[in-house]
Design a protein around this nucleic acid. Structure first.
Lengths: 210, 210
DNA sequence: ACCTGAACACCGTTCAAGT
DNA sequence: ACCTGAACACCGTTCAAGT
């Protein structure tokens, strides 16, 4: 660290990867102070550049937020894939692990999760964000197709089954992120218990009638 | 209307119910332009008073938003009760109608729904808002208790069963409000179909094993 | 190409002042 | 009690200018 001191300034004037530095700065503000705390000027300040420098890399504030949201989707998908991979032998357990990973992301990064799904960034205007979001959806659908083939889920349009599960996952995740769990429920159950219980009910509803 | 012209100004100087006029003005802005369009100054402008007049009735902007959110909960609960009352003879159908009414509210008032459940107003700081929100929750729980007694739902902690259903309802409602229905799903199903399908799966999971 | 400072039109909020 | 205008410290965004 003190060795760095004598070296030429690491944050050079034309500093090369300002774009990713801005995304990091904005993410830091988001996690620290929530979405209201994310300001274009504040992000620039945190990155050590003038207030107008971000406009070299982002058309406007929404474009910066879109980049932050996109990173969130990548992180969430990565975590879900890791969780699912631990259940390669049990496709239903893999779906379950994936769903729980999504909820865990919302629990640990509530502001980020809200940004990803909220109205501040219209995905339609940001193709690479839409793409990253679509990955989360196709991952879940794919896992369900696998579980269907293995006989763990009942037959039917995969996207319809995936959507039912996704409603539960997203509902629980947003309730957690927004701290809207009814007090009576919160007092009795942990988030983990709620997630497992909710998915067990949905999975029971999706089980083959046999 | 022209008769009014000659009468003394209806919007009197000290205008008596400025509080509810401000709530109405803010609600109008919310529905017209979304949450970013709701501004304290703009609300005052719309109500025809100075920018600082709202501070006589609301501690700050959040208090105004809390009042708007509270009205939203009242409207939503009223609609859900009407819907449930049409199925007085079938407790499970009543629960279903209630859930669908919540989703319909989110569909028709997306910005309002987001405000009610989002982070802009911390319910903890606004008791009467928290109270109005609790009514939606206790209504749903009560309907489920009734359905349990009638044998339509399996036994168990009512708030746990209610929460599972609530996750699905809220998940679907926020996906609709935020226009986040995956394109493949949106192209194939209507919101009504999605709601019915989602609840049928959850209700199947909550049915007595008999 | 990349970054800057000054400027514009907006905010939320406070304060002294008016009736 | 209720409302006002001026002021302060912030925004997002634009523009002419600097290297």
């Amino acid at each position: 660290m003190s060795a760095r001191r004598s070296a030429p300034q690491r944050r050079t004037y034309h500093h090369g990867n300002l774009r990713s530095a801005l995304v990091d700065a904005a993410t830091g503000l988001l996690e620290a102070e929530g979405q209201v705390g994310v300001t274009l000027r504040g992000t620039a300040r945190r990155a050590g550049v003038s207030q107008t420098a971000p406009y070299r890399h982002f058309r406007d504030k929404e474009a910066l937020l879109a980049a932050v949201a996109e990173e969130g989707f990548r992180d969430m998908v990565r975590a879900a894939r890791r969780a699912a991979a631990r259940h390669g032998d049990d496709p239903v357990a893999a779906v379950r692990a994936m769903a729980i990973a999504y909820v865990r992301f919302a629990t640990t990064h509530p502001s980020h999760y809200r940004l990803m799904f909220g109205p501040s960034v219209r995905g339609s205007a940001h193709p690479s964000l839409r793409q990253a979001a679509a990955t989360a959806w196709t991952d879940l659908t794919g896992a369900i197709v696998t579980a269907q083939s293995a006989g763990g889920f009942r037959a039917g349009e995969p996207s319809a089954l995936a959507f039912v599960l996704w409603c539960s996952v997203h509902g629980l995740a947003t309730l957690v992120a927004d701290e809207q769990i009814p007090p009576a429920v919160r007092a009795t159950f942990s988030v983990e218990q709620l997630a497992e219980h909710a998915f067990d009910v949905v999975l029971a509803g999706l089980t083959p009638v046999s």
